[in-house]
Amino acid sequence: MKKMKWIGIMGCVAAALLGGCSKSKPVLHVYNWADYIKPELVEQFEAQEQCRVVIDTFDSNESMYAKLKAGATGYDVIFPSSYMAKIMNDQDMLLPINPAALPNLKNLDPAYLDLAMDRAMAYSVPYMLSITGIGYLTDRLPDFEASWTMFNDPAVKGACTLLNDMRETIGAGLKARGYSLNSTSEAELAEARDQVIEWKRNIAKFENEQYKNGLASEEFILVHGYSGDILQVQEENENIDFAIPREGTSITFDDMVIPRDARNVALAHKFINYLHDPEVAAENTEYISYLCPNKASYAYLSEETRENPILFPPEEVVANLEVVADLGEENAKYTKVWDQIKAAE
């Protein structure tokens, strides 16, 4: 009986909550990576536009794309990496961006825009930049070197992770051997494969998400991961640091796009424009520790952030960064190598 009463009360609460929210406020459906936007900024946008923002998250471009291809609809703004934005555009899945609705586009940093795939911002607007590199525990690895060779180090045996991402991890293998991470040469890929298999014998697992918590809780000593993720957990554990491997690595643009079946196109444009407001962009960068390539926002960043060599790397480091490109048919070569890596003992 008591139980029934509780169920009744919970039902009422749920009904009140749902009822309260659905009072004909416009809803913006966002599909984003986890921990990739400052929640207070979303609330501020909701108050400003008298709307409700619903955020779904994905953990890889591929899973997001597969879900859309399988028929998931109803999103208004999606945050794919630029190579995936290009595929989506090629597949006619995106609406063109209307520059007239986005006055804040003038704030974008032209230096980074040069690296982007969609320089004209015809179908995508850059959101954040991330550099893939190595996170590690400074106190456990006194002899750390900013190099991919660290993954061979017996000191990290069974306590390091590589990304469970075909392009990033094979890309690291290619970079470690001095090749482009978009290489389609079979011989180079074979070398990269052998390199990654060598690392595989030393790692605890291939991991895309949990490596941050693993590093923060000192379960892992060395992880292959994204700059912002590592900087985020640095606040939980002071011993964490991030390094950009000297052999070079990948830089990723995560873009904002509007899918073809978006229901609230005007609100989607407002959201994109809002995130490129200099003060908002600066606040977001400070919070999620990725760099929003919005030049006007740099002035609002704290000095500490502006001097952070990971967010603002020196030119010689930037020269070694490469953007992952979609390879179309050639992707099959990476799939084959990835299968061999996964099957290797």
Binding site: S60, E62, A66, K69, T335, W338, K342
Partner: peptide
Amino acid sequence: NKIAQRTFVDRN
């Protein structure tokens, strides 16, 4: 895991 990889990562 292989089926998941084929579906999501390899788009096959």
